[in-house]
Amino acid sequence: MLRINTRSVQILGQQISHRRLSELSLLIFMMPALVLVIAFVIVPAAWAILISFTNQSLIGPNARNFSFIGLENYVRLFNDPGFWNSLGTSFIFVFGSAFLGQFVIGFSLALLLKYAGVLSRGIVGGSVLLAWVIPEIVAVYIWASVLNFQSGSANQILLAFGLEKQRWLIDMPLLSIIIVNIWRGTAFTMLLFSAALEAIPDTLYDAASVDGASRWERFRYITLPLIRYTILLDFILITMGTFSVFGMVFAMTGGGPLGRSEIIGVYIYRNAFEYREIGYGSAASVVMLIINLTLALVYLRFTRVEWSAEA
């Protein structure tokens, strides 16, 4: 039986009004974190918008004495084939590596490994994870060697099958960075779906088997409906994640040759830090921000934050 201690309820009641004040004063603990996030995340976003309307440069006279030039950067941006190329490249990069690669392989692996033995789970799952956890620049170095024309292992395999050697990074740079990004990012999808599948009670499958449901029917009518939110969540997260990739592509191909693997992040970097036009580069940044914000708003639709103060 639950017995309510009336005296302690009274004490609590008296304390509540006092506490409301001290409660609000606790908000001060949030300040340091807030200041840092505002300074290095929020202010830069606003700043990018502001300088995208200027002719500011990285060095030289226009670094300090820049002026507002209205929409000039945007007009130039939208007339630059290089910019449209970078958007197209980004799109193919995201579609190829996130959807066709990471999702398909990661999802299949999660399904297969759920019923696999400890050994395959450890070896196959472990290898996929390993590719994800090593530092980005190590992944670049490994793949630069694997795709090496002279004696890299990719060409070793082609030769073993009687095929011709390929100049991967020169003739198919976009395909190369897509392959590397599949290698690197598949673990994310695999982990996400492994957790989602783990959460489905076995009893559901047992009951369906008793009723004579086939393997495919169990997947179609039990698994799929239960993980549809995970599928959406995964799509959005890997799309945003892949759209934000920079270091791997920058270090691997530098966007080349001739811009054929230049995703938007590399385009921004090149204009700002190589051509030193930070006003113009920022205009491209703003476009990237808008695209990501759109994706992020879709993402937030699937979050479960409550708008109330009790969140």
């Binding site: 934000s244 992040g265 970097y269 580069g281 940044s285 921000l289 990501n292």
Partner: peptide, 22 residues
């Protein structure tokens, strides 16, 4: 809390220019 999620998924490349200027 929503804003934090937005900040989290913001591509850092898009704000790298102001971060450098700052």
């Amino acid at each position: 809390m929503y804003a934090l999620l937005l900040a989290r998924v913001m591509p850092i490349t898009a704000v790298i220019i102001p971060i450098f200027s700052l």
